[in-house]
């Protein structure tokens, strides 16, 4: 029986592919690599690597402890590298307009009930529930891919992260 080796990427070990153009513009493919983007990011910077109308995919370098954030809708955090601890809080009062898109930074730890924690490793996907607050912590350096909506802290850096020739 064949022994297959499944290849996942990490900050330390990834092999980026690319667009081989025949008759097109490589910018039309917005080709990037999550690990490359995170390797050049500040901790918890939310860098868009995908955008479809108002929806975005954000690559996040998890390092140390993030700020608290409040989300008006469900978000989903997929750990792509490292071990990330996610702390969830049910705030005593509404912290973000429920009709808004994307999460917002909180200036301080929210008042409310602790909902618990999730300790997630590579491949683990965690729901960040609508109307709640969360923060992340990583002892080393990790990478999170966030499924969310464009928000005030979404960073666009397409020219820097995408293949252009």
């Amino acid at each position: 029986m064949t022994d297959y080796k499944t290849v996942f990427g990490s900050l330390e070990d990834y092999a980026k592919g690319g667009v081989h153009i025949v008759d097109d513009d490589p910018k039309y493919y917005a080709f990037s690599n999550i690990f490359e983007v995170a390797s050049q990011a500040a901790p918890y910077e939310k860098i868009a690597v995908g955008k479809n109308l108002e929806y975005v995919l954000e690559a996040i370098r998890a390092e140390g402890t993030s700020e608290w954030r409040a989300t008006p809708h469900d978000e989903f955090a997929l750990v792509m590298d490292g071990t990330v601890r996610i702390e969830l809080c049910d705030p005593a009062a509404e912290l973000v307009d429920a009709s808004a898109g994307g999460s917002v930074t909180l200036d301080e730890e929210p008042k409310g009930n602790s909902m618990g924690t999730v300790t997630a490793q590579r491949g683990h996907m965690t729901m960040l529930p609508a109307g709640k607050a969360y923060r992340m912590h990583c002892d080393g350096v990790g990478v999170v891919l966030l499924q969310t909506i464009e928000g005030p802290d979404t960073v666009y850096r397409w020219s820097d992260i995408c293949q252009t020739f």
Binding site: Y4, L78, G123, M125, M127
Partner: peptide, 28 residues
Amino acid sequence: RAFADVDQGEPVIDAAPGYEDEVCSFNL
């Protein structure tokens, strides 16, 4: 057969009482 080496461990979930339905995570 081609994913026999994929880690099957699930995330560690520590949900406070009453929040078991909202503190959710799985190994995608």
